[in-house]
Design a binder for these strands. Structure first.
Lengths: 249, 249
DNA sequence: CGCTAGCTTGATCTCACTCAATAGCAGTGG
DNA sequence: CCACTGCTATTGAGTGAGATCAAGCTAGCG
């Protein structure tokens, strides 16, 4: 079952067994890519969509000088270019941040789903809107938070998304990015990211070393980064964990 | 016919007459709001979506100190909170930048459309994805362009979107924003916006006075702001106009 | 063992912010 | 008709966060 983590722990409820089976059968094949591979080029016509199963995928826009700017990062369970179904071509590149395993879903199968499964279609639509909500938060924080707060926000957000799919235990998670990558996400230079990371370590808030993030004080990080998980549309218990609050027993 | 400007001049073709009629009949009522009104509050449950007919609407996120940050601006023909149909609540406020006239479409009517009109549904989905594409461009430019370039990009983008609905003639358009508003969109202070506006005027690129934007050299503005209209998914002729290229005869 | 990628730290510079003051203009009320 | 108020635009001076430039360090790897 490749689609287990799709919409896991989100508001609006899980998919039904039948919906999962339909989605599963929409998969045409499983593919793998190496770190650094480009999965889809900006502007190229697309006739399939990619469900991320393992690893991390980035969306990036190149500037005229060739420098990459990450506009989004995806975690397993994300339907990374589902928007290609309606747009027909992407406005950005898709790249593998790590070795990745993906499921390929032809648009023809999505059209079939759209004709027959009203609720599932709305939930897939929801997934693309979730991306947009994450974009909006990024716009907000890039324009109004300082470097430290931006990094805090990104770490909180990533922790929350990984929590939803069971890839974070709430205190630590694997994040295979370099400080340079983190800079491209947060709009900072690698030099400055390094200083921010050191600052957060010295403040005993978190550590980021050897691809492992350890959160020592999630509530404080969330406050510093003005992180509020509402825009991730997580279900109640997961949202509380994401904010560093103990789950109600 | 209130829905004439929906999807006008976009890639993927216009809506059919039947689709327009169906969309038109989905409208429950027409409402007006005054400048400064909040149409929808962040977090409030929504059961209708808003099609903007006249005026400008903003989406904004308030920071803890109460300052507003615009994350998006909408022009007539935009389905400003269509994403509320799948999300059920918004992650931001909707506010009237000017006096506005809107058409209100109940989600029940959208569900009806979703059950019966596969192509129209996909085109509505497309509309929400267009928003996301605009968000991504904004993320990119907020993190990598300087103040002057950001303002240039915003003016080019707004001109392009207004061109699509016939509210710009390609050289000038009405933009009822203060310099402070422009600052909130571009992530700048009003003081600095003022300096950028003066600079652009002195460079003979454009003027922005009394709510009128006049573009004196659109190709130069586009270059300065690294604007490329591809992410707006305009049809060919409109895209060329948006880049300041004479339409092929 | 040398090479390369990533991490770390220091010094300097600059773009845009902040603070501050003034001007113009529309509306309002006495 | 004019004083008063509030909003927007404008310009100047000083400041600071983060970029840039530069150099050294560390660790994995062929």
């Amino acid at each position: 079952m490749y689609v287990e983590r799709v919409l896991l722990n989100r508001e609006g409820g899980e998919l039904s067994d039948k919906e999962r089976r339909v989605l599963e059968s929409a998969i045409d094949r499983i593919s793998t890519f190496d770190e650094g591979d480009i999965l889809v080029r900006q502007g190229a016509p697309v006739s399939t969509s990619t469900l991320l199963l393992e690893g991390f995928i980035t969306r990036h826009i190149d500037d005229p000088s060739g420098r990459r700017h990450l506009v989004a990062m995806h975690v397993p369970g994300d339907f990374v270019d589902l928007h290609g179904y309606a747009l027909k071509r992407l406005d950005h590149d898709l790249g593998a941040l790590t070795p990745v395993k993906v499921a390929v879903v032809p648009h023809a199968a999505l059209e079939q789903i759209q004709e027959e499964m009203v609720h599932l279609t709305r939930r897939l639509w929801f997934l693309t809107l979730l991306d947009a909500a994450i974009h909006r938060q990024r716009i907000y924080r890039q324009t109004s938070l300082n470097a430290t707060a931006r990094v805090c926000h990104f770490l909180c957000e990533t922790n929350a998304r990984l929590l939803a799919i069971g890839e974070s235990d709430g205190n630590s998670f694997r994040l295979p990015m370099t400080q340079g990558d983190l800079g491209e996400v947060c709009g900072l230079t690698n030099v400055h990211v390094n200083r921010v990371v050191r600052e957060l370590r010295e403040m005993q808030l978190c550590t980021f070393r050897a691809s492992i993030v350890e959160l020592h004080d999630l509530p404080a990080l969330a406050t510093l980064g003005q992180f509020d998980a509402h825009y991730l549309y997580l279900n109640g218990p997961t949202a509380r964990l994401a904010m560093g609050q103990a789950e109600k027993s």
